[in-house]
Design a protein around this nucleic acid. Structure first.
Lengths: 239, 239
DNA sequence: AAGTGGTCTAGACCACTCA
DNA sequence: GAGTGGTCTAGACCACTTG
């Protein structure tokens, strides 16, 4: 039984935070099972109902997957299903496409004005910047420039080949991914973009301005994408 | 205690269905309170925990709103907040815009091929079709054509001035709105669209293809919209 | 003070998976 | 058959709103 002062957050939220921290800091590994509800309830000194409520929450946040008769497992955010969930672009048959990535340069610098606004940084904070082109069936469909707060990704340089996969990067740096907000507009392809996407100049292009947020609400990536939708579409589910 | 056969759906889902039906058929009115948890639990012969789980579900489905100390209220889907939730188009300051509607003609006919596909109808089912233009601050920003299965809206003709507001229409016809799926693509404005939107021909336009579904999954509306995004943007939250 | 929803407990039993 | 999560019960007590 935890302390129950007057202004305390509900127990199940405190328990959720403790379990989430254990996933973030690597105590529990992606793909591996965690102890069963009853053991966890005893360990944290709460009832099984409260532990269940915490785990239900975490399942909704895609931190764990529960399977009747098998157990509760830490989600691997780099799995196809989970890492693709932020790719709203679909091919003709409706499947999500992430694309093969043709990596441009990775640079580091101080945040510019827009980066400060989107990533809630101070003027002299550092960011990593990544350019890339995404291909689907050998055809480029999107060019993108992404910026990430350098302070959040101390291990960026260690990881080979993943600076374009924000959810993988976050997982390796102990960040729990929450949600993304994407602003969509349209424009005509500039000559440079037209060349990169191999379309005629001034072809109508989908412009994507996306901010990815951690579960705690911190912005972790800002991405500008320009996308040729002639062979694809962008699918949104609104509920 | 309800019957507990072997292949029955969980009790809390059965209870949810019963309560939802009571909202759909008008037994409980939008904006009005429903009985408290304990009374409902007694009425349906379930424990308060089970009733609570059913009500939690319904809150997530936006059928009711619960307020500690006040009660549980049937949501009015025509409220600004709820009716705007499917309008992803935002003005410069980030607010959702529905627009003033300039209504075109309303017609009835048999479903064409696309309508059959999108609305899951048979070849000779009837549909209502509505054309309209949406204005924001006196400027047109979207033209749209919507189709609805005539069978689902027996009371369409009775209702003055709402055939463009699908959630209001659904509520009056005893349909519980679930979610929408919107396919986004880009195109150049055709001369007709350019004139309606008062933009230059071949201006890049956002094309929206949206199917609205009832809570039970039945398609209730298919809408094609063409949208001038020069002063606005489309905002998606992906979780 | 009375009435509401929100949290929390301590169980029982069911359904499913797997060795 | 042993172990897991899923459902369901019958309470107690807390936090909030309203008269």
């Amino acid at each position: 039984m935890a302390s129950s002062g007057l202004l305390t957050r509900p127990l199940y939220l405190q328990v959720r935070d403790a379990l989430a921290a254990r996933i973030a800091n690597g105590g529990w590994k992606p793909g591996k099972p965690i102890p069963n509800e009853l053991d966890l309830a005893r360990e944290y000194g709460v009832s099984s109902g409260t532990m269940r409520k915490a785990l239900d929450l975490m399942e909704g946040e895609r931190l764990v997957t529960r399977q009747q008769g098998r157990g509760t497992f830490v989600n691997d955010q780099t799995s196809e299903e989970l890492s693709l969930r932020f790719s709203a672009i679909r091919d003709a048959s409706g499947g999500r496409i992430a694309g093969q990535v043709e990596l441009g340069e990775i640079t580091e610098g101080t945040a510019n004005e827009l980066e400060c606004a989107r990533l809630r940084l101070q003027a002299h904070d550092h960011v990593y910047r990544v350019h890339c082109t995404r291909l689907h069936e050998d055809r480029p469909f999107m060019v993108e420039e992404a910026s990430m707060p350098a302070a959040l990704f101390p291990r960026l340089r260690e990881i080979n080949g993943f600076p374009h996969q924000i959810v993988a990067l976050a997982q390796k740096n102990g960040i729990l991914v929450g949600k993304a907000e994407e602003r969509i507009s349209v424009c005509a392809a500039t000559p440079a973009v037209a060349e990169a996407l191999r379309v005629a100049p001034s072809t109508p292009i989908l412009a994507l301005d996306r901010v990815m947020l951690a579960l705690d609400g911190r912005p972790i990536e800002w991405r500008l994408g320009q996308c040729n939708l002639t062979a694809h579409h962008y699918l949104v589910e609104i509920s």
